[in-house]
């Protein structure tokens, strides 16, 4: 773990979780600090989403603790969990927009349900957020009528509506083309600079996502292998990280092994 004096906002301590016979998380430790961007990477099926669901309080661990703002999500009651979640913004992998509501109603929902704002106030704030996401004119559309990139932007607008302290992104660019992905990254960068939120991003988009990360953590074998800055991550000697970097970032890092493979073939 890298030295960092910023306050720990989320701490996962010896987290374990099994589904029937399968142990998905086997002693996960991770600290996420205030105002930073933590990117969680890992191959599919390694438990990234399960890890995220623990941080969201949607799953309870079999063992271990999930501390958010110093409160243990695995033991607190529904009311306290609700208080913690008031500081959350979440962009789900499939966005999870309410499909029977218009874009406007989707974005307005947190305001309507969680604040006592008047309808006029709500309108001005929703319009402002939609404009920030470049979504003017889509207010009356339903999610099914939007493209993938637009849905993500509506999801982001909804997630950021109440200026959350922590924003979780579950694979924010999966299924988008390169330019749409870049657009989401730009919006992320812009809004984080503006709202100063802590970001937790689960992503496959290596190496591009490294540009946005303060820290990168690799989930493999049910554990967080290491949590490093993007630069250190790419140079790490940890075998699991090396293997991941080799697989995801191309042959530059595996030239030696390529050559070895060559010799082996020759020997046969």
């Amino acid at each position: 773990m890298v030295e960092d004096n910023r306050k720990a906002i989320i701490e996962l301590i010896d987290l374990e979780k099994s589904f029937k016979q399968q142990k998905v998380l086997d002693g996960v430790n991770l600290t996420i600090r205030e105002g930073t961007t933590m990117v969680i990477v890992g191959a599919s099926g390694q438990g990234k989403s399960v890890l995220l669901k623990h941080m969201l309080g949607l799953l309870k661990p079999d063992r271990g603790r999930v501390l958010v703002f110093g409160r243990d999500l695995s033991t607190i009651g529904g009311k306290e969990l609700k208080e913690v979640r008031q500081e959350y913004g979440v962009l789900f992998q499939n966005v999870a927009l309410f499909d029977s509501m218009t874009v406007y109603d989707n974005v307005a929902l947190p305001l309507r349900e969680r604040t006592k704002s008047s309808e006029a106030e709500i309108r001005s704030r929703v319009e402002e957020k939609l404009a920030l996401m470049d979504l003017q004119g889509t207010e009356d559309k339903f999610p099914a009528q939007l493209s993938g990139g637009m849905k993500k932007r509506v999801g982001l607008a909804r997630a950021l509506m109440l200026n959350p302290k922590i924003v979780f992104f579950d694979e924010p660019t999966t299924g988008l083309d390169v330019s749409r992905s870049n657009e989401i990254y730009r919006l992320f960068y812009k809004t984080q600079a503006q709202l100063k939120y802590t970001a937790v991003i689960v992503s496959h988009d290596v190496p591009k996502i490294f540009k946005l990360a303060d820290y990168v953590a690799l989930v493999a074998g049910g554990k967080v292998q290491e949590c490093l800055t993007p630069e250190d991550f790419q140079l790490s000697q940890n075998p699991a990280i090396k293997a991941f970097v080799k697989e995801t970032m191309g042959p530059i890092y595996s030239s030696e092994e390529e050559e070895m493979g060559f010799y082996e073939t020759d020997q046969r």
């Binding site: 969201l56 309080g57 979640r85 008031q86 979440v90 789900f92 499939n94 999870a96 309410f98 947190p110």
Partner: peptide, 25 residues
């Protein structure tokens, strides 16, 4: 069917994460 589809498409999780109680809402 409506609630089931909302569960499957994570809409209920989304409500919970937005600190909106699905039982009430």
């Amino acid at each position: 069917a409506e609630i089931g589809i909302m569960r499957n498409s994570e809409q209920i999780d989304a409500l919970e994460c937005m600190a909106i109680d699905p039982h009430k809402y």
